[in-house]
Design a protein around this nucleic acid. Structure first.
Lengths: 208, 208
DNA sequence: CCTTGTGAAAACTTTCACAGCT
DNA sequence: AGCTGTGAAAGTTTTCACAAGG
């Protein structure tokens, strides 16, 4: 895939645009301008257009963007034009909350399997999602062609769990455990650290 | 507070450094170098030193950093040298998982009050945290000197809830609802959007 | 000889200004 | 007239290279 160097922040904004477009579609909008799309987003229209320009031309000069088409294109760019299936490891409070989370489906993402090492949880179901033992992971990933997994285990189990996931076939990890993972370079990890996010907020508040 | 322009990413890394230092302290480390601190972090030592340089000089040339002192300084810089109390609004699955989340306390943060509009929840407790009705918010914030709140309500209630929080005295919001908030410029909002984070991961996987 | 701290250079990202199309 | 798309300029962040200190 030959691409220019695309800023990481550009990529992070794509799902934001997509979500807003889905809302605008629900409101009945057929055509929108870059100004309308970015209006409530704290992003400038030219930033939006520049972001899109890394991937092609999707609008009509003098007119704007076709909502349906842009939604389709954004999904394709992000890689969620087909439903993306993922697994989750660690069915504690946070894990089960994520399994039941409603925000994934409109973005074409779905948690279809959960894993835990607690015998009391294995075999049970949450919202039709079966909780499996860790050793069933390789077979499950292969059968369902899954490469992405979410970690929701305690911080002191995260490294070990991540290694098991990778051995089982996982290529990308979304890590909710408050610790950094030491993995080979070809595995992509994205961190969601609630305390860091709160810390950022607290700093900004004190210094702005 | 007179400060140079500090990169946002620098600020986001501070809690990461802090968390790692707390681990190193637990392992018994007294003195660490920038190399040791950043070893498992995918951050370069020079980046770490540059980040610190925005705030002062905390190390000894030829030696390294005193772990205890650097922890103390980082807490002070972030603004968590004293315990920071916050509230949470929306005691659903995710909200209650966050109330029980163990990752806040080592960062000197604590959820001390929760709010919901469901009469079945009001008056109940989760881990000693009382769930209150929304109209008790102004009094509670004032009495406990709280300025930071977490939103965990459904996306279509988030805007309304945010406005109520601000009227009650909140100055900074951590928003878990998958929608952007339209608020006055002096309110600081930080977004945690699980689907966007997963989307970023999916894109990277397809394009790296 | 080790490690920090930092101006300066390089790399990267956003904004500007405007050409080009409807 | 109105809006997109984009090279170039401006602004920001990271990396480099090395001076300074233990």
């Amino acid at each position: 895939m030959l691409k220019k160097n695309i800023p990481g922040d550009t990529i992070k904004r794509l799902p934001v645009y997509l979500r807003n477009l889905l809302n605008l579609k629900k409101e009945g909008k057929k055509i929108v301008s870059s100004k309308e799309i970015t209006f409530s987003l704290n992003i400038s229209p030219v930033q939006f257009r520049k972001d899109l320009s890394y991937f092609g031309k999707f609008g009509k000069r003098g007119v704007g963007y076709d909502v349906d088409n842009l939604i389709k294109m954004l999904k394709k760019i992000i890689g969620i034009d087909k439903k993306i299936k993922v697994i989750l490891v660690g069915v504690g409070r946070l894990g089960s909350a994520l399994i039941r989370y409603k925000g994934f489906s409109s973005m074409n993402m779905e948690i279809i399997g959960a894993f835990d090492n607690d015998p009391n949880k294995i075999g049970k179901k949450i919202e039709e999602i079966e909780i499996m033992s860790m050793d069933r992971m390789p077979e499950f990933l292969k059968r369902n062609k899954i490469e992405v997994g979410i970690i929701c285990v305690p911080f002191d189990k995260a490294q070990e769990v991540a290694e098991h996931m990778i051995k089982s076939g996982i290529k990308g990890i979304l890590n909710f455990a408050p610790t950094r993972l030491n993995l080979s370079k070809n595995i992509f990890v994205n961190y969601v650290d609630m305390a860091s996010e709160l810390g950022f907020l607290i700093f900004k508040l004190k210094n702005l």
